[in-house]
């Protein structure tokens, strides 16, 4: 036996699946909002229906995230204290201020997508106004973890960048999947012309998605490298997290959520998806679902894995 260290502190993770779900939903909400804003900027409101879906998903998801974090709080009744006090070093303070603000803004924004108007200058301006707030909220979801000096797994730059890519991928996937469902419910999937236009013109979206996934993979690889070959504590934190949540992270988060969607996309291209709309629709649906499932487990593994008990250094 080399060294045995006993230090009993309160056991169990501080943050559990509820916080993972907050990161997930809040991130996807930010992604959905930015999707609508981007589509509006690029296509000038031509894809009103999908933007409409996205614009309503945003407040719903952001609200869902807020509810989750409230459920996690021991004393949510005192939440108003956040607004009486100012603590810019606390990501949660920023989140507490800006996430509700974004929620309000996104509701107003969604309301502007109601009706049949394609062009709406007010909506566009509101979108531009909300964009930096959305980026702050998205970044906050990364900083929330990264700000913890005592959690080497989180305390990295890539954690923040991965959060940004994460909200982009899950936001887009969420919009696509929900919109597909919406089309099916509305019976529009049978309408060849409609589907054709939809597919032709979301190629841009798909390109973004592919780029995001590739960048996300690169970020995570860099993150892994920096931990694996980082300080002793970095290595230990990676080992502890891998030991506990490695399979969830690598198989579900990375494999299912990032690599498999890429492969499926490539497969679809090779099988001549342009000629087979049925295949195209299926691939969009399946990849979106995979990205969403993987996206959740990625965050869950990250949240829980980052809280594993590390070997203690005592006057080393």
């Amino acid at each position: 036996m080399d060294t045995e260290i006993i230090y009993h502190i309160q056991s169990g993770p501080v943050w559990d699946w509820k916080v993972a779900l907050d990161l997930y939903l809040g991130g996807a909400g930010v992604g959905a909002l930015l999707f609508a804003v981007l589509m509006d900027e690029k296509y000038q409101g031509r894809y009103r229906r999908i933007c409409h879906t996205a614009s309503w998903l945003a407040p719903l998801l952001i609200l869902g995230g807020l509810v989750m974090i409230m459920l996690k709080m021991g004393h949510p009744a005192q939440l108003w204290q956040t607004y009486l006090n100012y603590n810019p070093t606390s990501p949660l303070w920023w989140g507490g201020v800006f996430q509700p603000l974004l929620l309000l803004g996104s509701v107003v924004y969604a309301l502007r997508w109601q009706g049949e108007r394609e062009q709406d200058a007010g909506r566009k301006w509101l979108g531009r106004l909300l964009t930096p707030i959305a980026v702050v909220v998205g970044t906050y979801h990364g900083l929330l973890l990264a700000a913890n000096v005592s959690r080497p797994l989180w305390n990295t730059g890539p954690t923040v960048i991965a959060a940004l890519f994460g909200f982009a991928s899950t936001g887009i996937a969420m919009v696509l999947l929900v919109h597909l469902i919406r089309m099916r419910v509305a019976g529009r999937l049978a309408d060849e012309a409609h589907v054709g236009t939809f597919l032709d013109n979301i190629r841009f979206v798909r390109n973004i998605l592919v780029a995001v996934i590739v960048l996300q993979l690169g970020t995570l690889f860099f993150w892994w490298l920096s931990l694996r070959y980082g300080s002793l504590q970095d290595q230990q934190s990676l080992a502890v997290a891998t030991d506990l949540y490695g399979p969830m992270f690598w198989w579900l988060g990375i494999g299912l959520g990032l690599i498999l969607p890429l492969l499926l996309g490539a497969f679809a291209v090779m099988r001549g998806e342009a000629e087979n709309r049925r295949l195209q629709i299926s691939v969009i649906g399946i990849t979106s679902a995979l990205i969403l499932i993987g996206g959740f487990f990625f965050r869950l593994a990250l949240v829980l894995g980052g809280q594993g008990e590390l070997p203690l250094n005592v006057f080393s």
């Binding site: 005192q78 204290q81 009486l84 006090n85 603590n87 606390s90 949660l92 303070w93 913890n148």
Partner: peptide, 8 residues
Amino acid sequence: VANCPTTA
């Protein structure tokens, strides 16, 4: 202290 959202 840095991370507390309410300065509690």
